[in-house]
Amino acid sequence: MARNGIQYGDVQQAIDTLLSRGDTPSVQRIRDVLGTGSFTTISEHFRTWRAAREQNRDVPPPKGVPEVVVNVASELWREAQELANEALSHYREEANRQVESAQQEAAEARQQAANAEQRESALAEHLRHTEQRLEQLHRELAECQARERHWQQQAQQATKHAEQHLADLQGAQRALTAAEEDFTMQLEAKQQAWEERLAQEEQRNEAAEARLMALLDTLRQERANEEKALQKRLQQWEKRSETLEQELRNKNDTVSRLQIDNGKLEQQLQTNQGHQETLKAALETAQRNLDQARRALEVEQQQSIAREEWQQQLWQRMEAMQAQLASLPEVMAPKSQE
C-alpha cells in the first residue's frame, strides 16, 4: 500500500516534467524530480500511471491534430514505453539480485549458526572428555604415587638384602681364596707325582718300544713267508682258473649245441603242436559225429521199440482174430442145427 508522503498526482506531475524534457520516466528519475519518497511508493504510482496509459493508448487523437504530430507522438510514446520497460526490467533484475544476495546471506548465516552450534557441541564434548581424562590422570597419579612408595619400600628392603649379600660375598671370597691356596698346593703335589709317573712311563715305553720293534721284525718275516705262500697259492689258483675256463668253454660249446638241438626240438614241438591241433580238430569233429550218431541211434532205438510194441500189439490182434476164427465153427454149428 502506498505511503501518505507521496501521492499519485505528485508522481504524475513528475512524469509529465520528464516527458516535457524528453527523458524517459523511471522510478529513479521520478524520485530525482520529487527529491524524496520511497522506491516502493513511487514504483506503485508509476505502475498505476502505466496501466492508465495502456488503457488510454487506443483512444483516438482529438480532431484537428495533424497526422504527422500523431505519428511522432505515437513513436515517442512507443520509445518511452520501451525505455520504461527496460528501466523496470533493470530494477527488477537488481531487486532479484538483492533478494538472492539476501537469501544467500541468510543461508550463510544459518550455516554459520549451525557450524557454531556444532563447534559448541564439539567443544562441550571435548571439554567433557578433557575433564574425564583429567580425572583419570588424577587417579593414575595417585596410583603412581602409591606404587612409588611401594617401590621405595622394596628398594630399601633390596638395599638391606644387597648389603647382606655383599657381606656373604666377602666371606665367600675369603673362603675361595683359602680354597685356591689349598688347591694350588694340592696341584703342585699332584704335578710332581705326575712328573715322576711320566718318567716311569717313559722308561716303560722305551722297553715296550724295543719289544714292539722285535715283534714288528717277527711280523715282517711272517708276512714275507705268508706272501710267498700266497704267491704259490695264486699260481695254483691261476692254473685252476685256466682249467676252469677251458671247462667253461667246453660247457659253452655243449650249451650251444644243446641250444641248437633245443631249437630243432622246439620246431618239432611246434610242428607236433600243429598236428596235435589238427588231430584235436578232427577229434572234435569225430566227437560231434559220434554224438550225432548216438542221437540218431537213440532215435532209432526209440523207433525200434515203438515198432516192436506195434508188432506186439499186431500179434496180439492176430491171435485174437485167430481165436475168433477158431471159435467161429462152434458158433455157427448151433445156428445150422436150428
Rank of each mutant, 00 (worst) to 15 (best):
L176P: 00
L134R: 12
A281D: 04
A95Q: 05
Q173A: 11
V11M: 02
V255F: 13
R149Q: 10
T36S: 12
A214I: 06
T48V: 13
A281Y: 02
N262P: 02
F183S: 07
R133W: 08
V70Y: 00
C144Y: 06
H275T: 08
R3N: 04
N115R: 10
L19T: 04
E108F: 07
Q270S: 10
R128P: 01
L290S: 05
E86S: 11
L219F: 14
P25W: 00
E201C: 09
E54L: 10
Q156V: 14
Q186L: 09
D23M: 04
A167L: 13
Q112F: 04
E226L: 12
Q192E: 14
L219V: 04
Q164C: 01
Q302G: 06
Q287G: 05
A114H: 04
D168V: 03
L18P: 00
L34P: 01
Q111T: 02
Y8H: 14
L34E: 04
E196D: 10
A207H: 08
Q301R: 10
K190N: 12
L76R: 00
A146C: 08
D23G: 01
T285R: 09
L176K: 00
E67C: 06
N225G: 14
R21E: 15
A210D: 09
V72Q: 01
N115P: 01
R307E: 15
Q259H: 06
H45Q: 04
K239N: 05
V68P: 00
T278C: 07
E67V: 07
E242L: 13
A102Q: 12
G9K: 08
T159W: 05
L290V: 09
A224N: 11
R257D: 11
E131T: 05
Q221S: 08
A199W: 11
S327W: 12
N252F: 04
V69I: 12
H126R: 11
N252Q: 13
R149P: 00
E319H: 11
L244V: 06
R294L: 07
V69P: 00
R147I: 05
P329C: 03
Q246V: 15
L137Q: 09
A224P: 03
I15F: 02
L290E: 10
E188T: 08
E180A: 15
D16I: 13
Q152G: 11
Q316I: 05
A281S: 07
S20W: 01
E247N: 04
S304F: 05
Q270R: 12
R29G: 07
D10I: 01
Q270G: 06
A199Y: 11
D168T: 04
E277F: 01
K239A: 11
M1T: 05
W310H: 15
K160T: 09
Q268N: 10
E238K: 08
Q292H: 15
N115H: 05
W315A: 11
N4M: 05
A178Y: 07
A116Y: 05
A73M: 03
P329A: 03
R97N: 09
S304D: 04
V255I: 15
L215S: 13
E245Y: 00
R211N: 09
L219T: 06
A286Y: 12
F46N: 01
E308S: 05
T48H: 14
H138S: 15
S26Q: 02
Q132P: 00
